[in-house]
Amino acid sequence: MTTVEVLIPVAATRIKERPLAPRLTSLVGKRIAWLDNMKANAGELLRNVAEVLRTRGHGFEMVIAAKNATAAAPDAVMAHLKTCDAVVLAISD
């Protein structure tokens, strides 16, 4: 067998594992953002999930937000989301 030494074409990254944010133990009284990616049915899905949670007694403040699916969220949207305790994102496509 003849061998050849080849360079690996995959680039290194600096991406570190990012642990999930601590989970909320309760939604009651929390400020929850519902982030719509503006594609078909995302908003409807979010509204339905929020409604289900509300009917189950999870009283929370509802913050509606949206971002264009074809680009990163603008700074203003990110700043708005940072005022919330949690964000629920629907990625419709």
Partner: peptide, 17 residues
């Protein structure tokens, strides 16, 4: 400097795939 590996010359395409 990128990392390297040694491969059988006859299997380079299969290995890369």
């Amino acid at each position: 400097m990128s990392d390297s590996i040694h491969l059988d010359v006859d299997t380079v395409d299969d290995e890369f795939e």
